[in-house]
Design a protein around this nucleic acid. Structure first.
Lengths: 221, 221
DNA sequence: GAAATGTTTTGATGCAGATCAAACGAACTT
DNA sequence: AAGTTCGTTTGATCTGCATCAAAACATTTC
């Protein structure tokens, strides 16, 4: 994976020696906000939801899929987590003790350089997500999600929803009820849903409504 | 400043040689989203607003005051800015060519280490701001802002609003109209406003309403 | 295959905050 | 000092989204 590509062999070995790979069923809380960041987690398989709570409310901050990591910033600062994480599917997770990550970074500037890249990218993705949330309506976010999923899955006019709709709703920052209504709004732009399958009649019509913006939608840049 | 504290002397000199310090009046756009990140900006004096636009709407992402920087992540990734910046006061800004920052980082691991710290901190602050926005109501955000300002300014029961209320409204993610109404809500908790001065009758009563949360409110950790 | 459990959809209602409009107030101009 | 400009406050209304409730579907369990 990218984070370790420029890692010196001995440093990599030291990290892996202290690391352990564990399987978790669906619905397990892997980390909890306010706890000290003792491990860097790397998702090898599955899907993890990052979220935060306050005063009885909860908000989804993002999702991590292979080979993403969490929470690098907390590990590097040797601070508490600001977010919690739970598995949404059966997952395999590689865990590296935080102290090892910090000493590996101090010992290997190739690794540190990769960390800078990973941090900067994660930071930028968070800013994009913030813009997505604050500058778009619910149906607009859904339209952009469909377009992205379509691009990702291939050019067919059928798009599969590869997660429960309640999870998709959380990802898009809305309730399941409003996701359902958002699909109804998009009917007017040639979208029909049948169970877990979306049909896109006209990509252009949907794209016009969605107002695609690379400064929000292009990930990993 | 912290970012350069562990910087090697020759690397620091090289950075400063290429840098230039410039004054700007209030209301100047320093950078614009979608443009290539050609400079790292360091605010030496004044106040800068970070914001983003899309489809005729605009949202404030944060503020930078001395000695804060922007936008490190874009400079390091050699990508376009995702945010725009404008001065809210007369400001002095130190600008360093992006290429120099990247090569300084490659040459000096002390500097790279400081960059990691700065990036991680900025990232965490953004997550905190996101939680502040999504998990609290407008009046709650205002209450927490008052408590923070009070702690920062000293323990008097008077708190000065050191910016226009329209700016404060943007910082709190609301319209000026709603800021005014939020102050009215807080009357019930012992808050009175007179022009740019806030009086806090009972810190405890306000704090109970505000539901202070270190995972949202403690900055720089 | 019937029951039980969980998910999605639909409908009705409520609320926080945005928007629009106008009044008010403070600071600056001449 | 009167007038202009700009920021703030107040009131009325609108809107998007959440919430609550219940029906419609799907999936799992026995």
């Amino acid at each position: 994976m990218r984070l370790f590509r420029d890692c010196r062999d001995d440093v990599f070995d030291s990290l892996m020696q202290a690391a352990f790979l564990q399987r978790f069923p669906r619905g397990v809380e892997l980390i909890r906000e306010s706890e000290p960041a003792d491990m860097l987690h790397i998702i090898v398989e599955g899907l993890v939801q990052m979220f935060a709570s306050h005063g009885g409310r909860e908000t989804t901050i993002g999702f991590v899929r292979p080979l993403g990591t969490f929470i690098l910033a907390a590990v590097l600062r040797d601070q508490v987590y600001l977010q919690s994480a739970r598995t949404l599917e059966r997952s395999r997770v590689l865990m590296i003790p935080a102290e090892r990550v910090r000493s590996a970074m101090a010992a290997d500037s190739g690794f540190m350089s990769a960390i800078v890249g990973e941090l900067a990218m994660g930071y930028r993705n968070t800013v994009k997500e913030l813009k997505n949330q604050k500058l778009r309506s619910g149906p607009e976010r859904l339209a952009n999600w469909i377009l992205r999923a379509q691009r990702f899955q291939g050019k067919s006019d059928r798009v599969a929803i590869e997660m429960e709709k309640r999870v998709l709703a959380a990802r898009l920052g809305m309730t399941p009820e409003n996701l359902s209504r958002a699909f109804n709004v998009l009917k007017a732009y040639g979208i029909t849903v049948q169970g877990a399958e979306i049909r896109v009649d006209s990509r252009d019509r949907l794209a016009a409504y969605a107002k695609i913006n690379p400064l929000i939608d292009d990930f990993t840049t």
